[in-house]
Amino acid sequence: MANNESAVSQSEVKLTAKDFSTGQDVRWCPGCGDYSILAQMQRTAPDFGMKKENIVYVSGIGCSSRFPYYMDTYGFHSIHGRAPAIATGVKLANPELMVWVATGDGDLLSIGGNHFIHACRRNIDLKILLFNNRIYGLTKGQYSPTSEKGKKTKSTPFGSVDYPFHPISVAIGSGATFVARSLDREPKHLQAMMSRASKHTGIALIEILQNCNIFNDGAFELYTEKDTKADNVVVLEHGKPLVFGKNNEKGVRLNGFNPEVVSLEDGKFSLDDLWVHDEFDPDPTRAFILSRFIDNNALPLPIGIFMQIQKTSYDADVETQINNIKTSRGEGDLKSLFFDGNTWEVA
């Protein structure tokens, strides 16, 4: 995708995080997880290998969607839910651009759900940063499509009665080709995910569990606090077994289709018995099972790349088709267009 023109040539001075900052006042609440996501992006962007004029950030509406204002690239802060659709147009018009979408759980999965699943289905080359804080922040605290059932919010004073979406499951089910999860509080990990997504051709989703300290504070505490995180998070690494725990004393084994936590200390199971992660598995079944760990309190939360597969991207196929037709039929001119069909002459 990054061709010679849009890529940064070796001789040029390497850009830094500061080059990607617009210097505009950042308007998120103090302490919001969004700050970290922005910082990690600014740090990672110089490594994308793209000139900054060839990078575009498109967003919808919500706290997360202010993101483009802070990145000194081209940006489009659009309307609620429509970022994937706008980004699709940008990418199709100029496939040489690297196009990122910054969006939230309400924006992408509620009002924009249709655009999201179809972007996944087409495998268009967009990189989606999903800021999932499981709440509506900008509208001041209503439950979102990723909020847990029973959540008490302003619009659900007696607890919500609807079941949440798992964004990773939705993405896998819709045909996404790169699906990852990270946390605002894991800067190094988040940077790695951004960098890996930038190298993927096709749709890439990074679900970032992000703390909204105003309306849903501590939603991901279990996964971020020092004393609980090791027992509740498993880091997915390609070719490595699923091991977690303070002393790496636990693992996840796949028993048929059922994942289960086993101890590596009681002699019954060893590393060899564990589920070995294969992020390139062309069959998305295992990635889907991983995406449902979140339903089972006994299982740890996986972070990392759930799956990535290689398929031609929609934008590339569109280009190829046009080029093939141009080659076989020759480039069209207006005269042949006007005269296409039954014509006659009045002399």
């Binding site: 699943i117 141009k326 039929r329 020759g330």
Partner: peptide
């Protein structure tokens, strides 16, 4: 009319159709 370089995008809905067009306009089409 692909040989004229026309790009047609059959969108998932009417909203996506115009939004993609707006994105393409932003990018210079």
């Amino acid at each position: 009319y692909k040989s004229y370089g026309v790009k047609t995008f059959q969108a998932e809905d009417e909203i996506s159709a115009i939004c993609a067009a707006i994105g393409a306009s932003f990018a210079g089409d």
